[in-house]
Design a protein around this nucleic acid. Sequence first.
DNA 1: ATGAAATTTCAGAAAATCTGAATATTCTGT
DNA 2: ACAGAATATTCAGATTTTCTGAAATTTCAT
Lengths: 306, 306
Amino acid sequence: MSLSLNALRAFAVTADTGSVTRAAEILHRTPSAVSMTLKQLEAEIGPPLFEGERKGTLTPTGHAVLAEARAALDRFDRAEAAIRAHAAGAAGRLVLSATPSATTHLLPEALVAFRARFPDVEIDLHDADSARVAEELLAGTVELGIASAPTTAQGLAFQPLYRDALGLVCRADDPLAAMTGPIGWAHLTGRTVMAHALSPSTPLPSAGGATSHGDEGAVTARTVTAALALVRAGLGVTILPRLTVPGADGDLAFVEMDGASAPPRTVGLLTRKGESLSAPARMFLETLGPCLDRLAGRLGGTFERL
Amino acid sequence: MSLSLNALRAFAVTADTGSVTRAAEILHRTPSAVSMTLKQLEAEIGPPLFEGERKGTLTPTGHAVLAEARAALDRFDRAEAAIRAHAAGAAGRLVLSATPSATTHLLPEALVAFRARFPDVEIDLHDADSARVAEELLAGTVELGIASAPTTAQGLAFQPLYRDALGLVCRADDPLAAMTGPIGWAHLTGRTVMAHALSPSTPLPSAGGATSHGDEGAVTARTVTAALALVRAGLGVTILPRLTVPGADGDLAFVEMDGASAPPRTVGLLTRKGESLSAPARMFLETLGPCLDRLAGRLGGTFERL
DNA sequence: ATGAAATTTCAGAAAATCTGAATATTCTGT
DNA sequence: ACAGAATATTCAGATTTTCTGAAATTTCAT
């Protein structure tokens, strides 16, 4: 036949305790069960494993078998632990790709929460624009993507997470800051609307937009930070997703724009279609939900949880 | 419950072959048995292991489990192989201590034969006089000893292997060389009988012996080789065990002495009493028997196998 | 859509393992 | 050396686990 793990375990415990009785207690068996298992093991191996009738001392063969048994049992136990940890999402890797806005505003909180629950999961976060998120997903480099809805969703599944309305960012002392309802392009006539290269997914109406706009495009900032600095300096206003604008900032104001003027972008979760997720990824999504709820609560109306 | 090796093996083989049917063939089971085992494993682990219904592709969890399962199975299989090898005497160490005469005349042949059968067993041979052989055995340094019967056999078991008669070594042109039957001290009157320090177990009758001897003790050689050289040079004769004297040597002759004059020493196997032997040691003893028979056949009457 | 192949389900059969009582052995203290 | 205590083994029956074979289901390819 073949050796069984059970038999090796019974042997190892008996050798350790030096007694069938105590081994039986540890293994939650009766002494007779352990005795029979041991007998069977010796029959399988050939030479005796214990020196006398009492199980106090091992034969040389017994020592050799014990060493091997220990190694095999140890490896098996660690494998079982690792398997359970993996299955529970408590081990492994979480590899995801996200757009800067998500990376900056959603993920920090989400990842902190995740890490608190699963400290042993490696986290690998890629920063990329929406197009690259899709690419990485299709290439298999990452397992999860967070980005706005992809134009070509071949092979990818998109699950909306939230709608991030675009809005006008202006100085707090700007007359526009006083407006409550959504504003449109009409309100911006004659204003300098700065373009910025945040991401291609932010639909700046600079090209092919209505001709009644202000002179948007005349000033272009490379980064969001730069654009905000210029707004603060009074150079003009700019249009950004709500999430991108720091929440508590006395100098700046955020005014929601109507959907026609600035269609809100939908940010969501990208996954490969028809492939199941790793346990860590599943657990991450579990922690992501409450996280979005909290965010919605903090940001109010302009942030719409989906 | 707990994971079973069987389940992991069924899973690994199924994942490897990508088919329950083929896995069942390899495992010598019916497909239904494998299917049930897999189902049970998935129930135990939680998340599914295979992507679709067909077993072609693994889920991320499946990949993690497969890696762990492989590691555990591999370790177990190697442990089983090692255990069987140990039990068969084909692995491990053979540590023995032997007196120079055994080391020189018996062990080379025995160890060559043993090594041919068990090339993977490490051999550690200690050279020591009879007293030290016993010491090493008691200290646990060695497992087997080959020496003459110990004076104090406390804790040691002695099993006679052969009787090595003492005999007179003289020049081939010595008148004594012509004698056929066993000779006694009477024949040596007036001769120079050289003492030598071969080993304390060689009973030289220099102290407390009969007074009718020759002037033995007047010349003492440190080694057997030296003693033989002196005999060859005509300085005198000496007394040695048969085994110690090179067999084919035209210059020297060996004449057996009667038991009363020179009691033959009994060389045997020393082991610790009440302790079983390692499998390699057992196998060595098995090869030792035939080896002694061959030696007896070659040396003839003066070498008595016991 | 249809047939072939693969997988799963199910009930009963077979095998392995366990228990509890009786028995045998070894150890310990006198 | 002996009796008693502790430990280990044996055995038969019970329990659990695992296997098989037939039937049903699903999937894949034509």
